[in-house]
């Protein structure tokens, strides 16, 4: 019994290690003073400063545009790719290519795309980041949808074809509805990954625009302020809510599937 109690020590060390920095960011965001280190009293003023900061607002808008655009590309192409790989080919090389962006170091993909955009003389901007994020996001969507495909019954599709439905009708009315939870999960994953992505955006966005992670990165280079803490606290709240909601949704999905 004593030994199993002892096991709780590294577990709680891990939890404290993971959450202490986050707690500090949130606590210091309510600091009334100017310092990010010494707490002087409770205030919401840095949230006000944040709401007035045009760079942050622009960064947020850019990030949402990039995330939305790349999620659409990744979801459509990734879903088709997953169905194609699962149902229409046995090629392991194609499997490997589809998964490659997820395992390749982000830095290598980033410089490859920088070279490519340079070669075709594309002016860098938000759309070059959208295209770039589409690459790795697609790999994740395809992987999630394939997992779902592996767990679905092909006999429904066969029945649909036997009853005279064409391939398009079968895909739209039978395959897609079965895959819907997987597609949704993949799209959410793609969106979240794009929101947070820094390295590839940093290399492929050019000098004129910034996504939110790049805005934060350059703010930090000019010194730490409670404004960054306030921004951090909001972002933490948003992603915590999203992850927990996602967790709940998959649980409900699983419960329904078991019924």
């Amino acid at each position: 019994m004593r030994r199993s109690k002892l096991l709780y020590v590294p577990f709680w060390v891990t939890i404290v290690f993971l959450y202490a920095p986050i707690a500090v960011v949130v606590a210091m965001s309510f600091n009334s003073g100017k310092s990010a280190y010494t707490y002087e009293g409770f205030s919401l003023k840095w949230y006000g400063v944040l709401a007035q900061d045009q760079r942050v607002i622009d960064g947020l808008v850019n990030t949402l545009i990039v995330a939305a655009g790349s999620t659409v590309i990744a979801t459509v192409l990734g879903t088709l790719l997953a169905v194609g790989l699962a149902r229409h080919t046995r090629s392991r090389a194609l499997d490997a290519i589809a998964l490659m962006p997820a395992v390749l170091p982000d830095l290598v993909l980033a410089i490859g795309l920088l070279l490519f955009y340079g070669l075709i003389q594309l002016t860098l901007g938000l759309y070059s980041v959208v295209l770039a994020h589409g690459v790795f996001a697609m790999a994740f969507v395809a992987a999630v949808v394939r997992t779902r495909l592996a767990n679905t019954d092909t006999s429904l599709e066969e029945a649909s074809r036997d009853l005279g439905a064409g391939p398009v009708t079968t895909f739209m009315k039978v395959t897609l509805p079965q895959l819907a939870p997987g597609i949704l999960a993949g799209a959410m994953l793609a969106f979240t990954l794009s929101l947070d992505e820094f390295v590839i955006a940093f290399f492929t966005i050019g000098n004129l625009q910034q996504t939110l992670p790049i805005v934060i990165y350059s703010m930090i280079r000019f010194g730490v302020t409670p404004e960054i803490n306030a921004l951090g606290a909001i972002l933490l709240l948003v992603s915590f809510t999203a992850v927990i909601a996602g967790q709940r949704m998959t649980k409900i999905g699983e419960a329904r599937a078991q019924d």
């Binding site: 590309i73 459509v76 192409l77 990734g78 088709l80 790719l81 169905v83 194609g84 790989l85 149902r87 229409h88 080919t89 194609l94 290519i97 589809a98 490659m100 962006p101 390749l104 290598v108 993909l109 410089i111 490859g112 795309l113 070279l115 490519f116 070669l119 295209l131 770039a132 589409g134 690459v135 697609m138 395809a142 391939p167």
Partner: peptide, 25 residues
């Protein structure tokens, strides 16, 4: 035809924006 319709868009995207860039590196 099915294989073509499902696989081409995604693979074309990956060829242009993944394999070509890596070949450039």
């Amino acid at each position: 035809l099915g294989a073509f319709v499902f696989l081409t868009p995604g693979l074309a995207y990956l060829v242009v924006l993944l394999l070509v860039p890596l070949a450039l590196v």
